[in-house]
């Protein structure tokens, strides 16, 4: 046990890489989710198809397969990524696909009368999105986004398999040098748990803020549609 705690510096370094991956990955995922999600609410069939292709493809492949593909396959056709870039890209593209479904569902779930009112008031499409639809949709998006954020953080553990020295990678190093299998894994499981709880807390605070902004009572327990965030058949209600 003490051997493991003595290597706390390695653990902290690993945890920092995990946090970085989570932040970069979720930033990319958020952008992709917003872009492809809003594209999915378009009235034009061709534009909507763009959303379908992105969502179905990247939701359909496993993150690890995507990562391997970026890291091992694409260099053979001349596209070379640093491991970190490949990892962030794979995580962001995968979680972004789930996020896009959440965004699309949330915007569509805003009561139809709100949309009609903006048309009656002669809002431009941009104003309509920015002033009326998005502020209401964000309140619906936040709980599922919180789940996706945790999923992304957990998913980042696989980057150790493409040689990035994140928390999981450090655990293998420490295990090899100290021989303390049990305590090494207990230590990093606890660190992952703490990171997840902090992320969850941050999302809760954001939820409370948005709910107050819209004058809604926050729901205490996750509903069915929140749990399966962005998955097929889990429309936001």
């Amino acid at each position: 046990m003490s051997d493991v705690l003595d290597s706390y510096q390695l653990l902290l370094k690993g945890a920092w890489v995990t946090v970085q991956l989570t932040l970069y990955g979720s930033a990319l995922a958020l952008v992709l989710a917003l872009v492809f999600g809003l594209v999915g609410t378009s009235r034009l069939r061709a534009v909507r198809a763009l959303n379908r292709v992105y969502v179905e493809f990247f939701r359909g492949t496993a993150t690890l397969v995507l990562m391997y593909w970026f890291f091992y396959s694409l260099p053979l056709i001349g596209l070379r990524f640093t491991p970190m870039f490949a990892a962030v890209l794979a995580l962001g593209l995968n979680v972004g696909a789930y996020g896009a479904e959440v965004v699309r569902g949330s915007v569509n779930a805003v009561p139809r009368a709100q949309y009609e009112a903006t048309v009656a008031l002669n809002f431009t499409p941009l104003q309509r999105m920015r002033r009326v639809l998005l502020p209401q949709a964000v309140a619906l998006m936040l709980p599922p986004f919180g789940n996706l954020l945790i999923e992304l953080m957990k998913g980042s553990a696989v980057v150790s398999l493409i040689t990035i020295s994140d928390l999981m990678f450090r655990a293998k190093q420490i295990q090899a040098s100290t021989g303390e299998t049990l305590w090494t894994y207990v230590a990093i499981l606890v660190i992952y748990f703490v990171i997840a709880q902090v992320l969850q807390l941050a999302v809760r605070l954001a939820e409370r803020r948005v709910d107050r902004m819209l004058g809604r009572a926050p729901s205490r327990e996750a509903s069915l549609s929140t749990i399966a965030a962005g998955a097929p058949g889990a429309e936001v209600r």
């Binding site: 696989v158 150790s160 999981m168 295990q175 499981l189 748990f193 969850q200």
Partner: peptide, 18 residues
């Protein structure tokens, strides 16, 4: 809550090695 918020990969290594 603990099992859900820690990575599957770490849990697999845990089971496999411990």
């Amino acid at each position: 809550e603990f099992i859900r918020s820690t990575p599957l990969l770490v849990q697999l290594f845990f089971l496999y090695n411990v």
